[in-house]
Nucleic acid binder design. Structure first.
Length: 631
DNA sequence: AATCGGTCGAGAT
DNA sequence: TCGACCGATT
């Protein structure tokens, strides 16, 4: 998220730049920005569980762009979630799953366009996707590094250490971590917006000699950041005004003067806010990063350089005791969340004679090729194996050799993805297990009202599962087609499918039969393992089925009530409480009409409560966490 | 003058 | 999911 409105606020400290002006330099890249954008191009494929590397190709396009200007990229990836953000992540995960279910439901109803937009929301950038890009980059001899925690801190460190002269990102938080030169909004033409930390005083509107970076960071935290919500009514402008006014360096004292300095008599600054402010500041200053030259974890700024109390650093991460583990995390060999070993690449064991695919940047020195670590090159293999074996004991996975372990872990990771392959199952469960008491629930099932009145699809075959299952339907539907054209085509297609009941059964068996992974596992020598895997996969399948049944009823209601208002039939007053807000696909002009007042109210209260919950989360994160969570 | 809340469109091919 | 934008609010 970053700081709302910071980039426009920094206008006076920023300038349009082009990559051609930074030839020969090194750039640290917030790779998740690229991955997220890249995922957009193949979201539907990913949602359906199809294999694709379009997102890797998309990222490589940017890499090539940088290389073509003789710029050395260092791809930086996010690592573990900070405890402060764990709940936010959880919420995102849930909302993605929600989108997935909605997409399935919409497909089932034949509302393909809406389903598409939901599908785009339900895909996540996983570490495996990052690892795939890392693999490609290793081939190209492009440096990659996985931050112990946030990529932001890692990039700021690379920038301040002089390893990277620029940072490419979309996240305005980078300025708070102390990065010097940040390029926002870089596009494929090579143009971007450069924010220079040396000009921050211009943005704040004070003379250079009076400017202190701490004041800038404090201003940003006051205006509301990822780690702390702002006080009500305080944005960047007021925070700036206050920070320029106060001379007090101890924020614990200064913060109490905000109401007085800003003439906001109703504003209350309680002790909890002050504590959380101190923690937020410490998080930006002292988060752990990985130093590839020294090959160890360090704080972005050491504690002894500041008078920061270590107790404020409870959200700045914790030190991994195992150096080897920290290194492999940074190399991308471990899944940052489970810490499972997925790869065994080591910079000291790279075959230097093997030419890089791209000669152009092979002359750049790798961040991993530091002279101070030559002694590690000949490290005996046994040592590594034992340390890894020890580690894997911790995660209940002890294999014979590292390679076995990696292979097993990779299979396990892939098994997770086959959940996505089960996506299509959604289409059937609704049909199969339509709850018998659906008429017992006060609001009549919308599918019914739909099939009786308005929906031509439903008329033909109520709750047809085929629409979702048949992926080719998606492919056939060009987004450019007019909605009318589209609906007739859907109709025609459906009719043609319905006449072939046999085929449908076949397709179904494909999904409910033994999952692909299980068959794959059968070929494995280790039988107990493959058995357990099979079990696991089947369990997941039934899990999803079960969940979906519950959802089906909830999900259907709003889509129908909206259809009622937007299509020809008389508007039926809907009393249904529901969380789903979908826009009618075939009648975009009716959008406003479709949103009745009570609905909007519900929506706002819902978001309000959600916000409240988030605040509470943040509070508990910072207010009540006395000890570091990890270790 | 600044903030807030809601809406909308871009992001990729 | 994000930021840009608008109108309402203080």
């Amino acid at each position: 998220m970053g700081i709302t409105g910071l980039i426009p606020f920094l206008e006076k400290a920023s300038a349009r730049v082009h990559l051609k002006d930074m030839r020969g330099s090194t750039v640290a890249v917030d790779t998740y920005c690229w991955l997220h954008k890249g995922v957009f191009s193949c979201a539907e494929k990913l949602a359906r569980g199809e294999d694709t590397d379009l997102y890797v190709q998309y990222c490589l396009k940017y890499v090539q762009l940088l290389v073509s200007y003789n710029i050395k990229p260092i791809l930086v990836f996010d690592g573990q979630h900070l405890p402060a953000k764990a709940l936010t992540e959880q919420r995102r995960r849930e909302s993605r799953q929600q989108s997935k279910k909605r997409a399935a439901e919409l497909l089932r109803l034949g509302r393909v366009e809406e389903a598409r937009s939901q599908m785009r929301r339900c895909v996540d950038v996983t570490h495996e996707m990052a690892l795939r890009l890392i693999h490609e980059c290793r081939e190209l001899k492009i440096d990659c590094i996985v931050a112990p925690y946030e990529a932001d801190a890692q990039m700021a460190w690379l920038n301040r250490a002089g390893i990277a002269q620029y940072i490419v990102t979309e996240d305005s938080d980078l300025t708070l971590f102390g990065a010097q030169r940040i390029i926002f909004k870089l596009d494929l033409s090579g143009a971007g917006l450069l924010v220079d930390a040396e000009k921050l005083h211009l943005a704040m509107g004070c003379r250079e000699e009076r400017f202190q970076f701490d004041k800038f960071r404090r201003m940003c935290i006051l205006s509301g950041c990822d780690y702390l919500d702002s006080l009500p009514g305080i944005g960047l402008a007021k925070a700036c005004k206050f920070m320029l006014k106060t001379e007090q360096d101890d924020m614990r004292i200064a913060l109490k003067k905000i109401p007085q300095y800003l003439n906001m008599r109703n504003l209350e600054v309680d002790d909890a806010y002050i504590e959380n402010f101190m923690k937020a500041e410490a998080t930006f200053k002292h988060m752990y990063i990985y130093n590839p030259l020294e090959r160890r974890m360090e704080r972005l700024s050491a504690l002894e350089n500041n008078e920061t109390d270590e107790s404020y650093c409870s959200n700045a991460g914790s030190l991994l005791a195992d150096n080897e583990q920290a290194l492999h995390l940074a190399l991308g060999n471990l899944n940052p969340f489970t810490l499972k070993r997925l790869d065994n690449w080591h910079p000291d064991r790279v075959d230097a004679t093997k030419p890089a695919k791209h000669i152009k940047h092979s002359k750049h020195k790798s961040i991993w090729q530091s002279n101070s670590h030559q002694e590690l090159v000949e490290q005996p293999k046994e040592t590594k194996q034992t340390s890894c074996a020890l580690f894997f004991k911790k995660v209940d996975f002890v294999g014979q050799t590292i390679d076995d372990e990696i292979e097993a872990n990779q299979r396990q990771e892939q098994a997770k993805h086959t959940e996505a392959e089960l996506f299509n199952i959604y289409s059937y469960t609704g049909k199969r297990k339509r709850s018998p008491d659906e008429n017992a629930t006060p609001p009549a099932s919308p599918v019914h009202s739909k099939s009786r009145h308005s929906n031509p699809f439903a008329k033909e075959t109520p709750r047809s599962p085929i629409v979702c299952e048949n992926a080719s339907l998606l492919r056939l539907l060009s987004p450019k087609k007019s909605s009318e054209d589209r609906s007739t085509r859907v109709n025609a297609l459906k009719r043609s499918i319905f006449t072939q009941e046999q085929r449908v059964v076949e397709v179904r068996s494909r999904f409910f039969g033994a999952p692909q992974v299980a068959t794959e596992a059968k070929t494995e020598p280790n039988t107990t393992e493959s058995e357990s895997k099979q079990l696991q996969v089947t369990e997941t399948a039934s899990d999803i089925k079960g969940n979906n049944d519950d959802d089906a009823i909830i999900l259907l209601s709003p889509s129908c009530s909206e259809d009622d208002t937007s299509s020809q039939s008389a508007p039926v007053p809907s009393r249904q409480e529901t969380a789903l807000h979908v826009k009618p696909a075939l009648a975009p002009t009716a959008r406003r009409v479709g949103l009745s007042k009570p609905k909007t109210n519900k929506r706002t209260t819902a978001t309000k409560t959600a916000k409240l919950a988030e605040n509470q989360t943040k509070l508990s994160m910072f207010g009540f966490q006395q000890r570091p969570v990890l270790k």
